[in-house]
Design a protein around this nucleic acid. Structure first.
Lengths: 213, 213
DNA sequence: TAGATTGTTAATCGATTAACAATC
DNA sequence: TAGATTGTTAATCGATTAACAATC
């Protein structure tokens, strides 16, 4: 599978499909879902659904549709969600705290939620050793490199002030982290083998403002 | 300006250009910036920059570039950011609180930041009347409609649990809100004259997981 | 003037949609 | 079998890039 490079936007929709399949109640027997229905629920065309899935293999039966439970597990595999994904949160302000708790609580609740908050960091000496959630203690930035190594950190979530974000990103990259989720309102410059996603409230608000009136 | 429909992705980049121009130090005299430099800083090609701007008019001088301060104000106008944009936050858990404080503090600090947290809502009776930031008191959901009207709410930020998000969106739409920023991990179905943007941490983490290995 | 950079058109690239043979 | 739906190819659509005349 994945003979060719698959566009980002396809991966994004795969996550949506997985979510829909995970929320479906698959009580008794085999449940099939058509590209039409999956598309309706995800807000995309049936052709899009079929094409997206076809990037990775043949998962359906003509005339019948897709076995929901089977497709769900196939997508989980494609997305690397069958193993634990270790996350570090850098910057434990209000947002960082909220995210750390959200992710760790959800992991505690849902058996299939693969993300684990493996570490949290803050540069404020006052906060070091504070426990923000059972099992999650705030560490100082000096311990970043060794922790990334020891805990096999896969993704660093950056929730520090904008002015500090690039330096934090540099440290993460140096420590070997290959995926960043940046909440600071700045573009991060990283080597091309490192992937950065952004979550930027101010940007969203500013974009939405355009569509007013 | 805006003779034709401008793609969403252009508006998104306009926000980036605005941010870069706003962060530039425009001390003395006229400062010019070329599409090359603006593009470098925003991470897009110079041709892209010129084409994006050309959707709205002619802002540059051949052989010279763009007057940074002038372009900044033009983009601000295009994006509707010259007037106050009123925001309501629905759901004042940890994330909602963090966002309310972030936006209102930034508005207090930056003279040109146009967003105002005009109201906050939560359905928990315990939280009603609690003040989360000077001038921002939590209101009960029953007051949503009248508040949207009275405060001219432009954008509703939805930070309620996933199970409640669609109902909240319906209420917002009914109350006349035309733009939503949804943090709950669900697709919202709204009339087509209402715009929804999403900020979805779990989705981003799941998408990033794909690129590991 | 000469050099630089815009605004714009044409060419390219890539993603979405339509359509239908294959087949369950 | 007949009806339904997939997987896939071709057609369409739209966005990005390249190139260059206009012009500061």
């Amino acid at each position: 599978m994945k003979r060719f490079r698959v566009p980002d936007v396809v991966i994004r929709r795969l996550v949506l499909y997985l979510r829909i399949l995970s929320e479906m109640d698959l009580g008794e027997g085999r449940v099939y879902i058509s590209s039409q229905e999956l598309g309706d629920r995800a807000g995309v065309s049936p052709a899009q659904v079929r094409k997206d899935l076809a990037s990775f293999g043949e998962f359906g039966k003509q005339g019948v549709g897709y076995d929901a439970a089977y497709l769900r597990e196939e997508i989980r595999s494609i997305l690397n969600l069958h193993r634990t994904v270790n996350v570090a949160i850098i910057g434990v302000g209000e947002l960082g705290t909220a995210l750390a708790r959200y992710v760790s609580r959800r992991a505690g609740r849902e058996r299939r939620y693969p993300f684990r908050v493996a570490a949290c960091f803050d540069s404020d000496p006052e906060k070091i050793d504070r426990v923000i959630e059972p099992g999650i203690k705030i560490r100082p930035p000096e311990e970043l490199a060794e922790t990334v190594e020891r805990e096999s950190i896969d993704i660093a979530v950056i929730t520090v002030p904008a002015a500090a974000a690039q330096a934090v990103a540099d440290q993460c990259v140096k420590a070997g982290v290959r995926a960043l989720l940046n909440f600071a309102p700045v573009k991060l410059f990283v080597p091309e083998n490192v992937r950065v996603h952004y979550s930027d409230v101010s940007l969203e608000l500013q974009q939405l403002a355009y569509y007013l009136t």
